[in-house]
Each structure stands twice: as structure tokens, then as C-alpha cells.
Measured scan of single mutants.
Amino acid sequence: MASQGTKRSYEQMETDGERQNATEIRASVGKMIDGIGRFYIQMCTELKLSDYEGRLIQNSLTIERMVLSAFDERRNKYLEEHPSAGKDPKKTGGPIYKRVDRKWMRELVLYDKEEIRRIWRQANNGDDATAGLTHMMIWHSNLNDTTYQRTRALVRTGMDPRMCSLMQGSTLPRRSGAAGAAVKGVGTMVMELIRMIKRGINDRNFWRGENGRKTRSAYERMCNILKGKFQTAAQRAMMDQVRESRNPGNAEIEDLIFLARSALILRGSVAHKSCLPACVYGPAVASGYDFEKEGYSLVGIDPFKLLQNSQVYSLIRPNENPAHKSQLVWMACNSAAFEDLRVLSFIRGTKVSPRGKLSTRGVQIASNENMDAMESSTLELRSRYWAIRTRSGGNTNQQRASAGQISVQPAFSVQRNLPFDKPTIMAAFTGNTEGRTSDMRAEIIRMMEGAKPEEMSFQGRGVFELSDERAANPIVPSFDMSNEGSYFFGDNAEEYDN
């Protein structure tokens, strides 16, 4: 993207840094990872977990959730003011799984939030270390993106479920800051804005008074975040219109849905970061690795190297396929839920299948599930090659597409044709070009129609051997075009429920 120079890199967003050079960025990201790792080690000690239990991804998720809940100030305040039966607002906890007599047992633990905050700050040299908290939120978000298709949420806001490739980060909490905003897809931002506008339509006082002023500035800020994701002048001009509207209503909703559809071809720039579970960072720190000293990046080879040398386990339900569970977590670790499966298959070195073909449910185990038949197995999170994460949407291309997802959002900077089903997408653009945004709409449609099938995206960008740390010898991959490109292809993934 041309304006790259004016933006802070995501590592800076990730670490609240002012302008830093590459070495400083690597050190501050490393410091953040160190903090998460030290916190995780301490929690495993508190909970008396064995090494194996500490490497269980379900335990990692519970521990991450506990610290996120302990620092969720708004919710904590709300819980104190609106006490609900049987919930102690000062405590947080969740299921911890232990191996007892050759069987997995679930144990519900409860801790004072104050105590968890103390352990977290102690692991982070006394700081609140917001960057580390956001990092864990993005890992949870990436896992949700890989596990669930947001059909219901899309339909509720009037969008087409086939636009799911635009929904990265749709389950990120509001408090995820600049680093969170960077990884949100165009569809996620559109959905947040539509929800806001709908509230304004239904509630006369939404934009009024002292609160209304705050609401208005939040609305304009979200519009600017979305505008910054678009790469064409016409899309940005249309966002200006939406932002400046005196009284946002149905016309703005129409414009936003139009823009979301246009992003299936004229893709937005959305950041991709490899955020790993805390149970990967903990053992690495415990083994003596100093992330701050060595430096770390979320968008280069580092996460690949770390996963190459990590042992992570997962509980497996009786009829689940461990290899499929591994694929789910591998995609989440690489922030690749909406990437082209052919690119992923090449990088991973084994075939990556669409969601609907995987015999696996989510990673988390519900409290009512029976533990008797639970097994555990090693997650295979290694890769054959590594590639640089991208934040450009890439230019655009036609490809055989599917009944489910009709476009992709690249996660890796790797040369390819970008699949999208042009006739299906263009069919949504018939007729409606009147109104105050008509010239911009016409211009956007013209650009979409001009998108050429034979153009290559990320020209000359390749993948790298894991021994090639400096990215000196790019390998331009070859793809098996007979395979499906979309992950949520004609899909039956479970729906995400809060």
C-alpha cells in the first residue's frame, strides 16, 4: 500500500510504541512475548500442572481467558453494579484439565481477579502490559475465525453469508486497541457500523446529549479505520460520505453494504499476525530463551520457528480426527482463516481442507461434555516452508469459486491468482447506482469489472525454506488448481455463540 510509510507498523501498534527502528520493534515485541511466557509459567505453578498438562491447549485457553477477564475493567465495573446470582464479580476462573488415573478430569478453578492481575503485572515488570493482553485477544479471535462461520451475524446486519472472507476479527472485544483495529476485516468494521446506525434509528437519543457526542466521535473513528483499509480513492470518498452524514440511517447502511461487497474484489488491507497460545510461549521462556534479547516478529519467520520446536497437546472428542484438529489450530496460529487453501497447503506441506470436510468441533470443551471418553493427542503445528504475512489485500483475480465463501483475504505475501467468483459478486451490483453516491458507485463498479483474471497478485513473492531466515531465496510455489480455494466452501461450520 502506498501510504505504508505514514502508518505505524503493526509491531508498533502491538507494543504501543512511538516510531521505533526494526531492532527496537523486535525487542519490544519480544518483551511482550516474554511477559506472556513468564505469566503462563507462574500460572502453571499456581495450578500445580504437570509439564504435559501445561502444554494442553484447553488449559492455555482457560488461563488466557482468566487474565483477560481480570483486566476487563468495563465488564468488571458492570458486574459490580449489576450483581447477578451466583456470579462473584471479583473472581474469575474456568475449567482446568488434569490427568488422573490414566483419565482426563475437569476441575473448575476460581481465583481472585486481583490475584491474577498481581501475577500478570509481576510477570511483566510491574506494568499492565496491555500489548500482551491484546495479543491474547487476537489469538482467540484468530481461533474463532478458523472455527466458526459468522453466517447468522452477517444475515442479521443485512449482509450476504458468502462475504465471510471479510469477517476477520469479528469476535475481537471493543477494547483491543490499535492492534485489534489493524486485524479487523472490512466486513467486521461494516458490521460494527451498521449495528451502531441501527441503534440510532431505533433509539432517538442515541446521537443526542453528552453521551451522543461520545457516540458520534466513536462512529467517526470507526469510519476512519474502515476508510484506511480501502485502497481505492472511490471507496475512500464513499467512506467520507458515510462519516460526514448528519443523521446516519438506511442510506448509510446501503452504502456500507455496497462497500463491503466491493471489497470482495477491490480488497481492503487487513493486517495478519501470528499470535500463538500462551502454552507455546511459556515452555520456550522456561527453556531459557530470551525473546527480548533475541527479538521477535509476528509477521516473519519467528512464529514458524517457534511452532517448529513446540509440543502442544489437545483434548480430542471420541469421533474427532486429531489431524483435522491440528489443521484448525495451525490455521489459527498463522492467522489464515480466509487465505486461499492452495497457498496454505503449499506452505504447510500437507493438504489443507475446507472447514466442512474437517471432523472436528471447536477447541474448547463445553462444561456439560462427558470427560470419560476424552483422549488427548499432539497437535501437528509444523510447516514445510515459511512466508511473510501481508497486510495488503493483493490485486484481484477471477477463479472458480464456491457456493460458500466467494473470495479470499490473503494472509501471506505469496504470488498467486486470487480466487473470487466474479459473476456471483457482480450480480449483486445491478441497477442500484442512484442517489448521492452514484458517481462513486459507478466508478467502483467500473474498477471491479476491469479486474483481470490473468493478473498475478504479489508478483514474484515466494515462500522460503525454514533454514532461509533472511528470506534470501524465494520459492514461487505451484498450486494444484483442481483443489478448492475457499475454506468455508459450501460450508456447515458451527455458528459462533458468545
Score class of each variant (00 low, 15 high):
A2M: 11
A2F: 01
R8E: 01
R19W: 04
T23F: 11
I25S: 03
R26D: 03
V29C: 08
I41V: 11
K48W: 04
S50P: 14
N59M: 07
S60Y: 05
E64P: 12
V67H: 10
L68C: 11
D72K: 07
E73L: 15
N76T: 05
K91G: 03
T92K: 04
G93P: 12
R99L: 09
D101C: 06
K103F: 01
E114A: 09
R117W: 04
R118F: 09
D128V: 13
A131V: 07
H135E: 08
S141I: 10
L143G: 11
L143Q: 03
T146S: 15
R150Y: 10
R152T: 01
A153T: 13
R162S: 04
S176Q: 05
G187A: 14
M189N: 02
R199C: 07
N202M: 11
R204E: 06
N211E: 08
K214D: 02
M222W: 08
I225E: 11
A237G: 15
Q241Y: 02
R243H: 01
G249V: 08
E252L: 05
E252R: 07
L259F: 04
G268H: 11
V270R: 09
A271K: 04
A271N: 05
H272F: 05
P277N: 10
G282Q: 08
A286N: 10
A286G: 13
K293N: 10
G295R: 07
I301R: 15
I301W: 13
I301N: 07
F304R: 02
S314P: 06
N334D: 06
A336C: 12
A336S: 09
F338R: 05
L344E: 08
S345H: 10
F346G: 11
T350A: 15
K351L: 10
K357N: 14
R361N: 07
I365A: 09
A366H: 10
N368K: 13
N370T: 12
M371W: 03
E380A: 08
E380K: 09
A387I: 00
T396V: 03
N397F: 14
R400C: 09
G404N: 08
A411M: 02
F412W: 08
V414Q: 06
L418N: 10
M426N: 11
E443R: 07
E443W: 03
A451F: 11
A451R: 15
P453D: 12
F464G: 02
L466K: 00
D468H: 03
P477E: 00
S482T: 02
F488P: 03
E495P: 02
